[in-house]
Amino acid sequence: MDLVKRYSIYHFKKTLIRFAVILLYCLVVVNFGVHNSYDSWDGTTYHYFSLSCYGVSMLLMCFVAAVMEFSEFKNRRNLDSWFSFPLDRWKIALIHFVNGAVEIIVAHTLSFILGYCKILPFVKECDLDMKGMLPMFFLILIMGLCYYGLLIFPFIIANNVFDGIFFAVLYSIIPTILISIIVEAFGIRRLSEYSSGLAYSLIDEAGRCEDNLTRKMYDWGDNRYEALKGGDIASIVIWCIIGAALFVAAVYMFNNLKTEKVGGPSDSIFGYRTLIPILMISLVLLWGGTFGFGIIYGIATFLLYVVLRRGVKLKIPDIIIIAVVTILANIPVNYVYEFSELIGTNTWDV
């Protein structure tokens, strides 16, 4: 048996307990989330169905899988052994990725079956439309795997577990903030319907499937697949491509990892150095400035840099960013609104 196969089996066995915990978590979420009912005072039983629980459990499962699969490479001592083993780094990364993906696929499949079984007895009674369930299964799974691939990149570029988790959170929320700015600044309201970032879309798509399930039961669902436009599909495809591309970049980074830097502060250009300015300036632009109150943004930026530098000894570019954020945040201007007014794309007053 070749080494890749041997190590894959060994690693799978080694992570079985962790997998059992992830699986249990998913089953519990779906078991208590997918269907709820209560009897009203007049004896009527009301049923509630929620498929968003699949999006939520997938989101957390991807996060846990990415962190757990790659956290052992954030310890320099471990890497002495790992990187001297006769297995190429990219193969190790791939094995760990596949192991996490298998866990996600199995947990999602089993929780889907559980959810399906829980919904099935109410199909007739509640007039449920089950034909959207299977596409939902694949949609959430594919988006989930891409989100998992996307999360590995920030985790790999970080030099320690804390930074890895922090970067992964920022990589999940920053796209949503940036898309919101573009939507508001250029008046492209439809864009937010198409995409608000992969993490957000995961829950959003699960919500759409939920509306489909109950389309005959309720008539107010406005997020059904009848409303699915080419843009939605394009958005999902684009995010899947981004997720896959970031995963490929992560494997490349892992293959060329500077072992000696692991365990120390993260200095990647794709890490704090870029993420802090983008996050803080975006938030100021999105929410606008308030004289006096803006100091909070400055303090928050300062604290983020303290975390980055592991101390209060900041560098000149850090101080410049803190100053820019503080100044922008103290000017009482709604930047996005003013910009849209300036270029004539303001749709706020329409």
Partner: peptide, 17 residues
């Protein structure tokens, strides 16, 4: 840096994993 070469090699670090 090639895995075939490292098949013949064993590193015992001062503080192994």
């Amino acid at each position: 840096l090639k895995d075939e070469t490292r098949r013949n090699l064993f590193l015992l670090p001062d503080d192994p994993y």
